[in-house]
């Protein structure tokens, strides 16, 4: 079942997506990505957690690329986290992996240029601020997510 929700912190906004991004759901996913990428209340970077993504079509991939461009306009970086192998292969085919950093886990952000350890700890430990109409974070914890890859 498709779900897309946003977890906010001072460091970054994390867009979580679960299920299929296709003709039925691409519009909602696009809105979620666009809103987060262009939000003035988001002062940090933007993370899209793909660990629970089952399927994504060209329209969903286009939404990610549009999100990248919007983040550039707002001088923030968009980072993809934990794409399943088949999704990563599609990202490679489109050479999006050359434009968007792809990390194995949220923990790996600590080694990423724009995210230091202190800020990351603050980010992942904060109580999620749920965007109205979105569901709170209900996915597996990051450590479990990495272990299952």
């Amino acid at each position: 079942m498709f779900k897309c929700w946003v977890e906010k912190s001072p460091l970054a906004a994390i867009v979580h997506v679960r299920g299929d991004v296709d003709l039925l759901t691409a519009s909602a996913f696009r809105t979620c990505v666009h809103t987060t990428a262009s939000s003035d209340s988001n002062n940090g970077g933007m993370i899209v957690d793909l660990s629970e993504l089952e399927y994504i079509d060209a329209s969903g991939l286009l939404a990610l690329d549009e999100g990248r461009r919007l983040c550039q306009q707002h001088r923030r970086e968009l980072v993809l986290v934990a794409p399943p192998p088949h999704v990563e292969r599609i990202l490679e085919m489109l050479k999006l992996t050359e434009l968007l950093p792809v990390l194995n886990s949220v923990e790996a952000l600590s080694k990423h240029a724009q995210f230091n350890d202190e800020q990351l700890d603050k980010s992942v430990n904060e109580t999620p601020q749920v965007v109205p109409g979105r569901e709170p974070h209900g996915g597996r914890d990051p450590q479990e997510r990495q272990a299952n890859r």
Binding site: Y55, H86, R89
Partner: peptide, 19 residues
Amino acid sequence: DADARLIELSVGEALANAR
């Protein structure tokens, strides 16, 4: 499984193009 998922994407795109 990886190939089946990519075939699913190909079929989905072909059907979406038809629509």
